[in-house]
């Protein structure tokens, strides 16, 4: 057997890949969260919509996004395979097993939490990614900025309006002033409309709890798998894992649907 195949088919090698893809998905969450903070801006979605164009057209981002889809599928698929293998290691279950006495419940339920997240990703991709790329519900909006007065007006285009480029920008001036016009697909509006559904908001918020609990164990666990367990760094890893990845990130994501629901 080739040494690479041998390494990655061993139990340690497989965990190594789980940790590697898992941490990569963590870095994605950071970018995704920071980018989506633009939803909170009071600019009718101009910043968010131009950001969405950038994220779907810039070549480097496109390459990374395919790597990301592959990582999600691989992490999930490998996870299910490992669960099946680990179940086989204990064919006869205990009548009584007191897991709470020796381990944190998140660490014992990574498979269930991960499955919830996987289903969430499917729903989430359908809601926004699919609608943006292939759906017909997302219309175009024109943003008219007055260059001198620094005012901004948005004007939804006719539902039948379409354009070849994802973003069209023109400058024009008349007797009342100079204007900069941007016409983009209005994903922001799609977000605002979708998050008026109470059940969808509830689903999103609940799924962020699954993310929080999955990362509570997952982030720290990845470092242990890489062999990084040292008294000098454990405090920092634990702090980032708990406060950043299982509190700030999921809370920020959960705030987005809630913001639009109550807006």
């Amino acid at each position: 057997m080739n040494w690479v195949t041998k390494m990655f088919s061993s139990s340690l090698g497989q965990k190594f890949i789980m940790a590697l893809t898992g941490l990569f998905l963590c870095t994605f969450l950071v970018i995704h969260m920071i980018g989506n903070l633009q939803l909170f801006k009071s600019d009718f979605g101009l910043a968010f919509n131009t950001y969405a164009v950038f994220m779907t057209t810039f070549p480097l981002i496109k390459v990374v996004s395919y790597l990301l889809y592959a990582s999600v599928l691989f992490h999930a698929f490998k996870g299910f395979m490992l669960i099946a293998k680990n179940r086989k290691a204990r064919p006869v279950k205990y009548a009584v097993q007191d897991g709470a006495a020796n381990s944190h419940w998140t660490s014992r339920n990574m498979g269930i939490l991960g499955t919830i997240i996987l289903l969430f990703i499917v729903v989430h991709m359908k809601n926004f990614w699919y609608e943006y790329k292939f759906g017909h519900d997302v219309g175009y909006t024109a943003y008219i900025q007055d260059i001198h007065k620094d005012t901004l007006v948005s004007q939804a285009m006719e539902p039948t309006y379409t354009q070849v480029k994802k973003i069209e920008e023109v400058n024009y001036s008349n007797e009342s002033g100079q204007y900069h016009v941007t016409i983009v697909k209005d994903l922001y509006k799609e977000v605002a409309v979708e998050f008026k559904e109470w059940w969808l908001v509830a689903l999103y918020v609940l799924c962020m709890f699954a993310v929080a609990f999955h990362l509570y164990h997952g982030f720290q666990s990845a470092f242990q798998t890489f062999g990084i367990n040292h008294s000098k760094f454990n405090g920092l890893i634990k702090f980032i894992g708990i406060w950043f990845f299982s509190v700030i990130i999921p809370a920020s994501f959960a705030a987005m649907p809630l913001f639009f629901f109550f807006k």
Binding site: S11, L12, Q14, K15, N86, N102, S103, H217
Partner: peptide, 17 residues
């Protein structure tokens, strides 16, 4: 590690139990 795997033990999920 190879022997451990061939014996059929499960893999580590760092629960700490």
């Amino acid at each position: 590690v190879a022997q451990m795997d061939s014996e059929g033990f499960g893999s580590c999920t760092n629960t700490g139990a």
